[in-house]
Design a protein around this nucleic acid. Structure first.
Lengths: 193, 193
DNA sequence: CGATTACGGAACGTATAGTATCGTAATTCC
DNA sequence: GGAATTACGATACTATACGTTCCGTAATCG
C-alpha cells in the first residue's frame, strides 16, 4: 500500500515550476469560484498545464485542494507578555488576512467534506493541528506565568476562544472582522459569570 | 421573482405521501452515504418515485437537502432554574441524538456549501436561526433572573457556549459525546480566568 | 365524461472526474 | 553523442450524475 515516489534517477524531472503553478491556480480559482465549482480542467487551463500533469502529482482533486490550502497562512504566534494580548494579536492578525484569502470559503468546504472521506481527513488533520499550534503555545505560556490554573484543559481552552469565530464562520454568512476579536477574548477569559 | 405554487384547483393533486417519502429517503441516504455521495437518482429509487416528481417540487438537490435537514431535531428548551442546568440539559440532549442522525455529516456540508451559493444561504439561514432559538431563550431567562449582567451580548454568549462543540465538529473528525458538555458549560460560565 | 395535472419510468443532453494515448521535450546512463 | 527513460501539453475517451423532456397512465375537478 506504500506508494513511494521511488524518486527515479533517469528521465525528465518533474517541473517544480508546473507544480507551483498548479497550486497557485488552484488557490486563485478557489477564491473566485469556490470549492464546489472548482474543476480540474479549469485548474489545468489556468496553470497552463495538461490534466495528466495534475493527476501525476495528486491522485484526485481533494488532496490537491488540501495541499493548496496548506500553503495559506495560519495563526502566527505573538508573545506580548499577557494572555489577552497574545490572543488578541494572533486572532486579529489571522482575521485580517482571512477575508481576502480563499480561507473563508475553502475551510468550511473541506471541513464538510472530511466527514465522508477518511482519506481526506487524514491529510487534513496535521494541517489543522499545525494551524492551531501557536494558540496552544500562548496558552501554555500563560499557565507557566501563572495566569491560568495548572489543571486547565488546554485543548478545551483553545476551543473556547476560537469557538465563537468558528460558529460565525460556519453557521452564518457573516464576514469575520478583526474587531470582533477583543470582545470574544475578553468574554472567554472572564466567562459569562 | 416570487414563484408561487399558484395552487391549481384542477388536475391530480400532488401526492403528500410521495413528498414525505422523498424527504425520508433523502435523510436515510444522507446518513448512509453522506452528502457528497448523495444522488437524486438514488433518492428517487429509494422513495419509489420518478426523478421528475422530485424536480417538480424542488428546483435542485440543495433545497431538497435543506428541507430534509430542517426536519431533524434541533435544540430543545429546558427550564431547570439555573443557566448551567439549562445549558447542560439542552446540549446533552442535542448531542445524544447527534451522532445517530445525519446531522453530523449534513451540517458541515451545508455550511461549507452556502459560502458559494447565496440561494442556499437564504434557505439555510432561518433554519439555523430556529435551531439556535432555545439557547437564546435560556440566556434571556438567566439575564432576567440576574444570573447574567444586563448588558451581555446574547449572541456572543451563545456562540461562546456552542463554539467548542462547533470546533470539534468542523475541525476534527471526533465524535460529539454528551459527556463533553459539562466541562464546556462550566468553563464558558467561569471563563479561563 | 372531458380537461387538467401528477404519477413512475425511461431516454436524453451536458458537464466533469479520472484514464489513456499521442507526439514532443528534458534528463541520465553508457 | 545516442539510447533509454520519464515528464510534458494536448486530446480523446469512459463513466457518472445532474437536470430536462417525453411517454402512457392515474387521479381529481367541473
Amino acid at each position: 500500500m506504500t506508494t513511494e515516489p521511488e524518486s527515479p534517477t533517469a528521465g525528465r524531472p518533474r517541473s517544480e515550476e508546473a507544480h507551483q503553478a498548479i497550486l497557485d491556480a488552484t488557490l486563485s480559482l478557489l477564491q473566485e469560484v469556490g470549492f464546489s465549482a472548482l474543476t480540474v480542467e479549469g485548474v489545468a487551463g489556468r496553470a497552463g498545464v495538461g490534466k495528466a500533469t495534475i493527476y501525476r502529482r495528486w491522485p484526485s482533486k481533494l488532496p490537491l485542494v488540501v495541499e493548496a490550502f496548506g500553503q495559506l497562512p495560519g495563526l502566527e504566534d505573538h508573545d506580548t507578555g499577557s494572555l489577552a494580548g497574545d490572543l488578541k494579536a494572533m486572532l486579529r492578525g489571522y482575521l485580517s488576512a482571512f477575508n481576502d484569502s480563499p480561507l473563508a470559503t475553502v475551510l468550511p468546504s473541506l471541513a464538510g467534506e472530511r466527514r465522508h472521506n477518511p482519506q481526506l481527513s487524514e491529510l487534513f488533520e496535521p494541517v489543522m493541528a499545525g494551524r492551531r499550534a501557536p494558540l496552544q503555545s500562548a496558552l501554555r505560556r500563560a499557565v507557566e506565568r501563572g495566569e491560568l490554573p495548572d489543571d486547565i484543559d488546554l485543548r478545551l481552552a483553545a476551543d473556547l476562544v476560537v469557538g465563537p469565530i468558528a460558529v460565525r464562520l460556519f453557521f452564518t454568512g457573516a464576514k469575520l472582522h478583526p474587531d470582533m476579536v477583543d470582545p470574544i477574548v475578553d468574554l472567554a477569559l472572564r466567562g459569562l459569570r
